[in-house]
Amino acid sequence: MNLFRLFGDLSHLASILILLHKIQTTRSCRGISFKTQALYVTVFVARYLDLFYDWVSLYNFSMKVFFISSSIYILYLMKVRFRPTHDPSIDTFRAEYLVGPCVVLALIFNYKFTFPEVLWSFSIFLESVAILPQLFMLQRTGEAETITTHYLAALGAYRALYIPNWIYRYFSEGVVDPIAVIAGLVQTALYVDFFYVYFTKVLQGQKFELPA
């Protein structure tokens, strides 16, 4: 564990708490892509099933339990509790276009052709693109509530912080995880546009609005 990874994980944790806070206080899931949230549940379940048979640490175990349970809870909030506030007509990205290729990629690129390893690769690939329905929705509506942009910023920061973590691990432990690194770089790159608007507008106190 190094500080980059720790702050990355904390940022990930914070993003979920911000999202929960947004839904609970506004009593609405407006502006949140259900598809992205459903993809995250898929990602967490596929990757963290190892918590039943592979012990890493108490930290690792608790985070996995938190990520799986909170992501399922968010789906419940969106589909049941605050269902009327979710508008599927603007959440139109075809998620199956993401899941299909990720299954294929996982079958080709994995560290071992076993069920848990292919599942792990699948979750890594899927996580790298899971934010696309959300970013697509943002692009489509052209604006976002400030709290939603803080959620995305925390999520993007988590990905960005994993990059110096890998560089650090390369020099301190001599390990490289090519699948995680390549997928992680792609994932972080997807946030570049968002971060540009976030830094130049939201952090200057303006509303998040995309140029028409």
Binding site: D50, V56, F67, N165, G174, V175, V176, D177
Partner: peptide, 10 residues
């Protein structure tokens, strides 16, 4: 140096 990975990251 690519070593076998233990998947210890989240």
């Amino acid at each position: 140096a690519v070593k076998p990975v233990s998947h210890d990251e989240l």
